[in-house]
Nucleic acid binder design. Structure first.
Length: 775
DNA sequence: GACGACGAGCTTTTT
DNA sequence: GCTCGTCGTC
């Protein structure tokens, strides 16, 4: 176990062995970052640093768990136990739990998830009689989230003329008022939203110097992973805590910053050297994960970004296979391509399912892939999407548990006060809400005092309300002696919640009941695990875990499965074979992120992240048409496809039978296909002379390009490429006007060397270059 | 107040 | 195409 140093390369070793003081590790994709972090922590401990004094902040719970496991393997389970390691949110949620009363929050404060926050904002907007279309709850929440992440409190908001003006200009002059109400209501409910966990931590550390001092002393060594994705609020917490010892080690890669949309500030990593004196800088540039082809292709893509730190990723690995690009007809067709490619690779190379991952830009894309995999009997697992804990039946059950710990939790109360139905309807709730606002009390407190408060409610309703309060209070009394599992069981029995679900009798109802059962099992597991680790197994801690849970670890069965997830979720993971699907304009890059250069650059970094997940093989696919919002729309190939240096890519074509007339019958788009889409498909299949092979090169002219080059519409007979001659002037969507200097390659794979107005000479693959001839 | 039918809006990504 | 919220009826 002492031999761990020997497993490191020179720069990794330096980073691990570096002594005290601020340091930054710029770690390229696949450069052994996790290894350096874990070894560094283990090394600190072997040098005599008490694990109690180390704080390691990771980006996901999963990363924390894995790292902790690996550290335990080096230093031993009992040594690693005191190590404080987790996400910003979970670490500071726990700290806040023991300090929250200083801020006026109960120690059993609730954590509102996004859904809770949106619902609360909806009611506030409604109560204020504002236009729901101008003040869309989700957007309002996004705005408030921005304020909070920038540490703009309600007070700061009102003294900031620019913000006031910006919101007024965007037609939302009441933003400040909504913000204030939202914060007040959360406070009254004893609830913090995700952003509050950071904001309130900052408040705690600023307002209470003794508390700050306590944690500064405790966390003598602080390590932050994925530093490029920290927001301002997180940045300030780290700065404050590290201020005493300055033993701060941040690890990150600016090229993998993909969370600007939720306030991540890439400047945090770019400016780290300015924040501290005498920063030691380490660069990990050797990639151990991917083939040369993949590393170089990814480099050629990220080259297109202007703002980045100077580093060059290289690898000694084999050259590896070309990146394969596949055009498909529809999302269903794309799914079938993925499924059969996985099937064929498995046959050819004896690979198991867990060697494959399918990555996509949006969760909605998973459906088509799932269908295709299921038809081919390929086991898969989906990460993300609607999490287990967000299902209605689970949230309802959890709402009761939340109420037991914190009866002021308004969102939990509204969820279950009339579920299962007990005759407390909207009218009553409206009266209660108005009263609660007027009296500055929570709804639960109003109900507790229902006999004192003069609300126009009839006796029957009052009795029902009293019964509800009594029910919750009886649970609270029982919770004194019962553990989390027993209390959950009791709640389900007393409220008859399961029976209410069952009476539906539908197949969905059965699965819902199973889910509730699964939740109970989860609570049981939780108690056992916590006991084993000698950690707090209270209901309160369970609810914190649940609120911040993301990756459901349904690794229950150990069957190898194909992984399906968004690219965001794939960060930090690696797979031998990776499919990146939906490589289309408006999807990737997303239509919402094409307005500014920096938005497109973030999308490009996202593509970079996707590419660098792969060890051996990357497949890129796009569909010519796809259902979006229930409508079939035509799609163009993504601009990112042409940004990959063409020497690393290879266009592959679908199998012949796909184009036979009868194959349209089982195609998704049969019957809905606009005539011209069909017309464009035929020539390709007909033109091919070679015998159909599993994989072969395609003709340069392909149906879907009709919209990109109107020119081609007139010449359906011959390939566009043959029309282009040396000396032609062309217009390119990104590079502008240019002159064709040379054309090379065979008919199937033609490239043109073009000198553009800005002086740059580019070699473009004619299949992807969006060129228009102007002379 | 409960329940079913209908329509609007939605899809960017997550703690 | 799906989900959530609103509206109308009982």
């Amino acid at each position: 176990m002492n031999n761990y140093i020997a497993q490191l390369n020179e720069s990794q070793k330096e980073a691990v062995l570096h002594k005290d003081g601020p340091m930054i590790i710029i770690a390229g994709a696949g450069s052994g970052k996790t290894r350096v972090l874990t070894y560094r922590i283990a090394h600190l401990m072997q040098q005599g640093v008490d694990s109690f004094n180390i704080l390691a902040l990771t980006f996901t719970n999963k990363a924390a768990r894995e790292m902790k496991k690996r550290i335990a393997e080096i230093v031993g389970q009992s040594e690693a136990k005191n190590l404080w390691m987790g996400t910003f949110h979970s670490v500071f949620a726990r700290i806040l739990r023991s300090e929250s009363e200083k801020l006026g929050f109960p120690s059993n404060f609730t954590i509102y998830d996004t859904q809770d926050s949106v619902r609360l904002l909806s009611s506030i907007i409604q109560e204020m009689s504002l236009d729901k279309d101008k003040y869309k709850p989700k957007q309002v929440l996004g705005r408030i989230s921005q304020y909070k992440n920038s540490l703009i409190t309600v007070k700061a908001y009102y003294t900031n003329p620019e913000l006031l003006e910006a919101d007024r200009m965007s037609g939302r002059p009441k933003m400040g008022e909504i913000y204030k109400n939202y914060v007040d209501r959360c406070f009254k409910a004893g609830a913090m939203d995700f952003d509050d966990l950071l904001l309130r931590t900052n408040e705690l550390l600023t307002r209470f110097p003794d508390v700050l001092g306590k944690y500064q002393d405790r966390f003598k060594y602080i390590l932050v992973d994925e530093y490029q994705d920290t927001n301002h609020s997180q940045y300030l917490i780290v700065r404050a805590l590290a201020d005493r010892f300055e033993n701060i080690c941040v690890v990150g890669d600016d090229s993998q910053s993909i969370y600007a949309f939720r306030g991540a500030n890439i400047q945090n990593i770019l400016n780290f050297q300015r924040d501290y004196k005498e920063v030691s800088i380490f660069k990990l540039e050797q990639n151990y994960r991917s083939s040369q082809t993949i590393v170089n292709a990814a480099n050629s893509v990220i080259e297109n970004n202007q703002s980045k730190l100077d580093k060059t990723i290289w690898t000694q690995n084999d050259k590896g296979d070309m990146i394969k690009i596949m055009r498909t007809l529809s999302e269903g067709d794309e799914g079938r391509f993925v499924a059969s490619a996985i099937f064929e690779d498995q046959m050819r190379h004896q690979l198991s399912n867990d060697q494959f991952a399918v990555l996509y830009r949006t969760n909605a894309q998973s459906r088509a892939i799932e269908d295709a995999l299921r038809k081919k009997n390929i086991d898969y697992k989906i990460f993300g999407g609607l999490s287990f804990y967000q299902r209605k039946e689970i949230k309802d059950t959890l709402a009761y548990l939340r109420l037991i710990l914190n009866p002021n939790d308004e969102e939990a109360l509204k969820r279950v006060i009339n579920y299962p139905a007990r005759g407390i309807g909207d009218t009553t709730m409206n009266k209660l809400t108005v009263a609660a606002n007027e009296l500055n009390k929570s709804i639960f407190e109003v109900i507790e005092n229902i006999d004192v408060v003069n609300l126009q409610l009839n006796t029957g309703t009052k009795n029902k309300l009293r019964d509800f309060v009594l029910l919750i209070k009886s649970f609270q009394a029982e919770a004194q002696t019962l553990n989390a599992f027993e209390i959950a069981e009791l709640v389900l029995k007393k409220t008859k919640l399961v029976r209410d679900i069952e009476k539906d009798g539908t197949p969905e109802a059965i699965s819902k009941v199973e889910n509730v059962q699964e939740l109970l099992n989860g609570i049981k597991d939780f108690i056992e695990v916590q006991k084993e680790k000698e950690e707090d197994d209270s209901l309160a801690v369970f609810l914190i875990d649940v609120a911040l849970a993301t990756d459901l670890d349904n690794d229950k069965d150990d069957k190898p499965r194909v992984s399906l997830m968004t690219i965001h979720l794939a960060k930090g993971l690696e797979f031998p074979h990776v499919f990146i699907v939906g490589m289309e304009e408006n999807l990737f890059p997303s239509a919402m992120s094409m307005n500014t250069r920096s938005e497109v650059e973030e999308e490009r970094r996202l593509f970079y992240v996707a590419l660098t997940r792969a060890e051996k093989q990357v497949y890129l696919s796009y569909a010519q048409s796809r259902y979006r919002w229930g409508k079939l729309v035509d799609c163009e190939p993504s601009r990112f496809l042409e940004e990959i240096d063409e020497q690393f890519v290879q266009q592959i074509a679908p199998k012949q039978p796909q184009f036979k007339q009868n194959s349209f019958i089982d195609s998704d788009i049969f019957g809905e296909t606009p005539p011209e889409t069909v017309r464009f498909k035929k020539p390709i299949g007909v033109k091919r002379k070679e015998a159909p092979k599993p994989i072969k090169k395609a003709s340069p002219v392909q149906g879907n390009f009709k919209r990109m080059h109107q020119v081609k519409m007139d010449i359906p007979e011959g390939p566009f490429a043959t029309k282009l001659k040396v000396g032609n002037f062309v217009i390119h969507g990104k590079f502008g006007k240019g002159e064709v200097l040379a054309i090379e390659g065979n008919e199937n794979d033609q490239k043109a060397e073009i000198k553009f107005e800005n002086g740059e000479i580019k070699k473009l693959l004619l299949q992807f270059a969006k060129l228009k001839i102007v002379n």
